[in-house]
């Protein structure tokens, strides 16, 4: 219950924050615990972004993924699912395949850094689950993403 209250507090603060820095300051004030999944989502960063039509990891993605690895190594019992997404500028089937490539690129990175293979599931959503809904690069750049979802495991 305490955590839920904290999350609401953080969300309220987040609404008022203009940029990442003040967001982080607000989180510090909220004293969110480093072991919370909310901490992983918001402070470690659960999402990495990709260039149009690409599945290669950019430097900004690699620094986020390194932080993910550090956090995940402290949480050995938690399974993770990596969701790969694409923006709306491609056809449905191609975007499913592209989302799978992106999720796989993240999985390969985590495996190379020592995260156990049996903890990781991957799934592609292609362009089916956009985060942002405008039809220009501002939204598209946020939709070309791979999200590391902690605590979720897809059973075959």
């Amino acid at each position: 219950m305490k955590n839920i209250g904290l999350v609401f507090f953080v969300i309220l603060l987040l609404v008022g924050c203009e940029n990442n820095k003040s967001f982080k300051n607000s989180l510090d004030k909220a004293q969110i615990s480093e072991s919370d999944i909310e901490y992983f989502q918001n402070l470690v960063g659960d999402t990495v972004l990709f260039t149009v039509d690409q599945s290669g990891l950019r430097p900004d993605a690699i620094s986020i993924l390194n932080a993910q690895v550090n956090w995940l190594k402290e949480k050995k019992f938690l399974p993770i699912t990596i969701e790969g997404h694409a923006d709306e500028q491609g056809t449905r089937e191609y975007n499913l395949a592209l989302g799978a490539r992106r999720a796989t690129a993240v999985r390969e990175f985590l495996l190379a850094k020592g995260i156990e293979q049996d903890r990781i599931s991957i799934v592609t959503y292609g362009k089916e689950r956009p985060l942002r809904v405008c039809s220009n690069e501002e939204c598209w750049s946020k939709n070309r993403r791979a999200v590391t979802v902690v605590g979720k495991k897809i059973v075959e």
Binding site: L96, A97, R101
Partner: peptide
């Protein structure tokens, strides 16, 4: 159909 294995479709 298409199948994806190890990220390759």
């Amino acid at each position: 159909l298409s199948m994806t294995e190890n990220g390759n479709t």
